[in-house]
């Protein structure tokens, strides 16, 4: 393992994490809801009357974030190297898997671990594990 010091951005990462933590805290304290995107979107597929608007509002906040950010500063680099075929395959797997596992990085990784939920700790270890493994396989075994 070699650490890529040139691209390591500890302060921005920590500050961004704190903002995410503030958002999740505000959401549970004010709205009484978990800021887990998979659950928020998943609920829209079979939302009961009156249960859809808060989901749409939170998601809309995520979508407009880059535009609002641009009012104050330039957006940092965003780079997607994967080709379209791989993006489609990965998207299908992410969508299906996150729903089957009842959560993703936000719901399990941030909110669940903050609640010290054993389910979320197991889920996070599982997806971090296959995440590391997948990159190892694609970059160092079959890729490059």
């Amino acid at each position: 393992m070699t650490i890529d010091w040139n691209n390591f951005t500890p302060w921005a990462a920590l500050a961004g994490g704190v903002l995410i933590g503030i958002s999740a805290s505000l959401f549970i304290l004010l709205n009484g809801r978990i800021a887990g995107i998979t659950g928020i979107i998943g609920g829209l597929f079979k939302a009961a009357k009156g249960d859809a608007s808060w989901r749409v509002a939170f998601t809309l906040g995520l979508i407009i974030a880059p535009a609002v950010w641009l009012l104050f500063a330039k957006l940092p680099t965003i780079k997607i190297d994967s080709n379209v075929e791989l993006l489609i395959i990965a998207g299908l797997i992410v969508g299906y898997g996150a729903r089957l596992g009842s959560g993703c990085t936000s719901g399990h990784g941030v909110c669940g671990i903050s609640r010290l939920s054993p389910r979320s700790i197991v889920a996070t270890l599982a997806f971090m594990g296959t995440g590391f493994l997948t990159v190892y396989i694609t970059r160092h075994l079959i890729g490059a």
Binding site: I89, I93, V94, G97, R99, F127, G129, G131, T134, V135
Partner: peptide, 12 residues
């Protein structure tokens, strides 16, 4: 589900 999600996440 979580194992699957991690695979998709790791792909892209």
């Amino acid at each position: 589900g979580s194992l699957l999600f991690g695979i998709g996440w790791g792909l892209v």
